[in-house]
Design a protein around this nucleic acid. Structure first.
Lengths: 217, 217, 217, 217
DNA sequence: TAATAATCGAGACGGTACGTCACGTCTTTTT
DNA sequence: AAAAAGACGTGACGTACCGTCTCGATTATTA
C-alpha cells in the first residue's frame, strides 16, 4: 500500500471529523505482519489482528476490505520491495542478476508469497490489490528494461516483451505455486539461456544465425 | 492421501456387510462438483456437500482429508482429463495443438482451476493430491514427448526439458494466477516461437547491425 | 434529568460562549419521535437520532442521559398530555370519563408506553425521569381529585387514596404490561364498580345464604 | 419453564441423531441464573452465558430464542415457584396469605422480576414465554380459587373474576414497575379491604349491608 | 469591532454483543 | 458394523450501537 492510497497522510482531508490515527495503522500492520510470518496467511484474521494490535475490529473493517488485503499490505510494509531492475547495458547480465535475486526471494519468502497469491484466487479485494500494486507495476518495470534492450539490438525487434515476462518470472511462479522442481540459480540461468538462444537445433529450420549456444545443464 | 484411502476403486473394500459405498461416493462427487461449479472452491464445504448428497459428514471426513481435496477429486471426476499429448512427429506442431487446447481449458475453466491451485497453497492435503495426481503426471507426459523430440533432433541435445515445461505451461499458469494479460492462442504461439527461435537477434551474438526493425506489439 | 440541564429555557445560562440552539433541541425531539413511532423504543438510538436530526452524537450525550430518556421526552413532546382530570362533582362519573380516555390511550399508544415503561426497568435515568415527570404527577392529580370526593362524602373517610390509584390505573397497566385480557371500557367500568360497591355479597359479612346465583362473565 | 416444554425430556424424539445433552442445559441455566442475579437482565447475554457455562453460542441460539427467554427460564428454574394458592374455605384469609407472600416475593426479587417484565416489552419471544408459562397459568389458578369462593357465596355472583386479579396482583405489579409507593403487607391488606367492602360510603347509594369496615390508614 | 469561549458538525476509535457459518469430534440410533 | 442424523465446542465472520475522544467551523457574548 502506498503513500497516496488508503491511509492518506494526516491533514490531507479538510473534513471536519477526527483525524485518522496513524499509530493505529502502524500497530495493525505490525500485528498483521507478525501473524503473517508466524501462521501464514490463514493466521491473518481480523479477530486475531484486532486482539494483537489492541484495536477494534470495526477499525479493521473500515480500512481494509478483507484479511487478505491487510496481509498483503503488511507484507509490503515489511519488505519495502526494492528488487529494482539493474541496467548495466547488458540485458542478459541484468536478467541473470534480477532472476537470481528473485529466486532467492522465493526461496526465503516463498511460503508467504504463495499464500498471498493463493488467497487472492478467492478474495477479489486481495486480487485487486495484488494486481494493481504489484503485478502490473513489476511487469511494467520489466517490460521497460526489455524495451531498452530491444532498442539496443539485444532482443529481436519482432519479439513480444510481455510474453518474455511470463517465460522468465512466470516460470518461477509456476514452480512456486505448483511445486515439482527446485527454484535455484541453475534454473533461472537455463530460463535465460533457453529463451535467448532458443531450443531449436541450429541449421536449416528457420533463419537463425549460426550463433551456437552454451551448454544448458 | 493414500492409494487405499481416498477414492477406493470400485469393490476394493472387503467390508463384510457389502457396503454400498460406491453410490455414496458417486453422490458425494456429484454434489461436490455441483457446488464447485456454482459457488467455486469456497462453496465446497463438507457441511454443504453432506446436505446436498444426503450423506453424513462423518462419511466425508472418513474418506477425504479436506474439502479442498474433495473438490479436486470432483473436478477430475468431471473432466476425465483427456488433454492427451499428440505425437505427429513434429514437436512444434504438437506443442501448438496442445497449448491451444490448454489455453482453451484455462479460458473456460480457469476460475475453478485457479481456485483449486489457490486453495492448495493453504491446504497441504490438497497440495499433495494436486502434486501427485496432476502436476507430476502432466510434467512427465510433457517431458516424455519433449525427450522424443530431442532424440529426433528437433530440440538441441543440451536443453533441459523440465525448464521448457515451465516456460510453456508455466507461463500460462502465470497469466491465470496473476492475471494481467490474456491467455489466447496468439500468446501460446508466441511462447513457442520465442522458445524455439530464441529472442536474441540473428548473426554474431555481438552488436547487431543498425537496421533495426520497429518494435513489435 | 433536571430542570436546569436538559431543556433549559432559552437564555438562562450567563456563560460567555455560544448559546444553546433551541432548534437543535426541536430537531432532536422530532427525530426521536419519528424513530419512536416507527421502530419503537429500541429504535431510538443516539446514533440513529443523530443521523436523522443532522446533529452530532456529542450533543445528544450532553443533553440527554440515555436514549430512553430522550425517547421519553420525545413522547411527552408529542402528546402534550392533557388527560386532565375532570371534576363534575360526581366522582364515579369523573373516574369513568378518565378511565375511558386512559383505556383509549393504552389501546392506541400502548406499544410505545409499554416500551417506555419496559425500558425504564433497566435504565435508571429513564426510570427517574418517568417517576418524577410522569408517575408522581399523575398520582398526585388523581389523589387530589379523590380527596375532594372523600371530603364530599363520596368515598369512605377511612380509605387510603393511593391504593385506589393502583386498583384503577394500576390494573390497566397490568393488562398492558402482562397482557392476557383486553383493556376496553367494559373493563374500566368493572374496575370502578368492583371498587365502589365491593365484591362481597350484601348482608352480614358472615356466611351468606346458600342461594348462590350463577357466575357472571 | 417446565418439564414438558422447551427441552423435551430425553428419549422423546425417535430421531436418529445424538441426544440432547442434559448437563449442557443445566450448566446453561446455572450460568444464566448467576448472571441474572449479579447483573440483572441486561447481564444475561448469550456471549457471557456461553463463556460462563463453557458452552457454544450456537447451542444457545439453537435452544433459546433470545437472551430474555433464557433468563426467564433460568429464573423459574431457580424459584420452582411454589406460591401455591391455599384454600382454607375463607377467601379473604386465603387472599391475604397469598398477597403477603407475593408482596414478599416482590420485595426480595422485585428487581429481577421487573427486569424480566421490562425486557418482555421489547422481546416478543420472552413475552410469549412469559405469557404462556407464567401470566396465564397464574391468572387461571387465581380465577379458579375465586370461582370457588363465588360459588360458596363469598363473592357476589355478578362480579367478573378476571378484573379482580388485576385489582389485586395487578395493583402490586403497578407499584413494582412504576414505583411510587411501597409494596408492604399494609398495602395488600388495603387492596383486599377496598375490594371486598367497596370504597363507597354506607347508606343510600346502593344497597350494601350495614357492615362498616375498620379504619384503613 | 474584535477577541473569547462555549457549542456543535463530523467522525475515528475501543469495546461488547449480536447472529451466522463451517470445521471437526463425538454420540445415538437405524439398517 | 456402517451409516444417517445431529449435538456440541471452537473460532472467525460481518454488523450495530455505545460512549469517549478529537478536530475544525460556527456564533453569541464580552472586552
Amino acid at each position: 500500500m502506498d503513500q497516496a492510497d488508503l491511509p492518506p497522510s494526516p491533514a490531507l482531508k479538510p473534513g471536519r471529523g477526527r483525524r485518522r490515527a496513524e499509530d493505529v495503522r502502524r500497530a495493525v500492520l505490525a500485528a498483521a505482519a507478525e501473524l503473517l510470518l508466524s501462521d501464514g496467511i490463514p493466521g491473518v484474521t481480523f479477530a486475531k489482528v484486532a486482539a494483537l494490535a489492541g484495536v477494534s475490529k470495526m477499525t479493521l473493517y473500515k480500512w481494509w476490505s478483507s484479511p487478505g488485503s491487510l496481509a498483503f499490505e503488511a507484507y509490503f510494509h515489511l519488505f519495502a520491495e526494492t528488487l529494482a531492475f539493474p541496467d548495466t547495458g547488458d540485458i542478459r547480465r541484468d536478467l541473470t542478476t534480477q532472476l537470481h535475486a528473485f529466486a532467492g526471494l522465493l526461496r526465503h519468502n516463498g511460503a508467504v508469497i504463495a499464500g498471498i497469491v493463493g488467497a487472492a484466487q478467492s478474495d477479489p479485494d486481495l486480487a485487486a490489490a495484488l494486481s494493481e500494486q504489484y503485478v502490473r507495476k513489476r511487469r511494467q518495470i520489466a517490460v521497460e528494461r526489455l524495451a531498452t534492450a530491444r532498442q539496443a539490438g539485444q532482443i529481436r525487434p519482432d519479439v513480444d516483451l510481455e510474453t518474455i515476462v511470463d517465460q522468465l518470472w512466470g516460470a518461477c511462479y509456476h514452480r512456486l505455486l505448483l511445486p515439482a522442481e527446485p527454484i535455484d540459480t541453475g534454473f533461472t540461468d537455463r530460463l535465460i539461456a533457453n529463451l535467448f538462444a532458443g531450443i531449436a537445433p541450429p541449421g536449416p529450420p528457420g533463419p537463425p544465425g549460426p550463433g551456437a549456444s552454451p551448454p544448458a545443464r
